[in-house]
């Protein structure tokens, strides 16, 4: 579900896979585009294909990932799960750093570098997060966001197998992030399956209640997830996510009563 899964393999492998996915998507889209009375404002011209992949991912979640995550939460106490979360967040350093530079946020980049230095040393390889206690809190950036900041439109909504909600722009961003990530440079992709799986399970364990609630609250789970992804990405690109005094919010158009 979470789309930070980008350093899945070697750069070449990831890029190849991404190209294959894109080719598949484009081939499929010519077949389904322009069908029916779908709402163009949803930004989802490939909806039939996306719904198929979404269904596949959901089955995978219901029958594999979620049960394993429940087990993991049962076995691993909170500090362990937090340590795992911290570790993977720390390993993400080069991606965040590079994208903060690309978005011309040198102060953020400096803070990210400081975090990495402190947490890798004092934080025992990133398992602990003393940097947050010094006021250096984590930021999250990726190349999809950078493209957004540069003015590249999101493009069609796209559900990726295993990785979940994305857009054409953000999928392209994943390939670039994979090239920036730490471990592809020294590890063969086979060795990465274990860590990747652990990260997926650990992340899923963190959101057990939230996902269950989203499923219960939504009337069309697919459309609800799509819209939440789109809103949240837009907020991340505009950097109003963690900013308590931040301006901006949903489009003002949302709050106009439409008179027929």
């Amino acid at each position: 579900m979470r789309k930070d899964g980008c350093r899945t393999g070697r750069m070449a492998g990831a890029a190849q896979r991404m190209a294959a996915i894109l080719a598949l998507v484009l081939a499929a889209s010519t077949g389904v585009a322009g069908a029916g009375d779908r709402d163009p404002s949803a930004g989802d011209p490939w909806e039939p294909m996306n719904r198929g992949i979404f269904w596949f991912n959901d089955q995978l979640d219901v029958y594999l990932l979620e049960p394993v995550a429940r087990g993991w939460r049962w076995i691993a106490p909170e500090p362990v799960r937090r340590g795992v979360r911290n570790f993977f967040e720390n390993v993400r350093f080069p991606i965040v750093f590079v994208n903060e530079m690309l978005q011309a946020k040198p102060a953020d980049a400096l803070r990210t570098a400081g975090r990495f230095t402190i947490n890798t040393t004092l934080g025992i390889g990133g398992v602990l997060d003393p940097a947050s206690e010094f006021g250096l809190e984590a930021t999250r950036e990726d190349f999809g966001q950078t493209l957004g900041v540069w003015g590249v439109p999101a493009g069609p909504y796209l559900v990726l197998p295993f990785l979940g909600p994305s857009t054409l722009r953000d999928t392209g961003g994943l390939a670039v992030d994979a090239a920036t990530a730490i471990y592809p440079w020294f590890a063969d992709w086979l060795y990465l399956i274990g860590p990747r799986a652990l990260e997926a399970v650990n992340t899923r364990a963190q959101f057990l209640d939230e996902v269950a609630e989203a499923k219960a609250a939504s009337l069309d789970y697919y459309a609800a997830v799509r819209n939440a992804y789109q809103q949240r990405r837009q907020a991340d690109i505009e950097d109003r996510t963690d900013d308590a005094d931040g301006k901006g919010g949903p489009d003002e158009e949302l709050y106009e009563i439409v008179d027929p």
Partner: peptide, 23 residues
Amino acid sequence: IDFIIEQVSLVANFRAQFQDMVA
């Protein structure tokens, strides 16, 4: 008239769902 939870507006989210369903 709206709750915006972690930058996700409930009005916008339900609107997207209902749009599909009415269509």
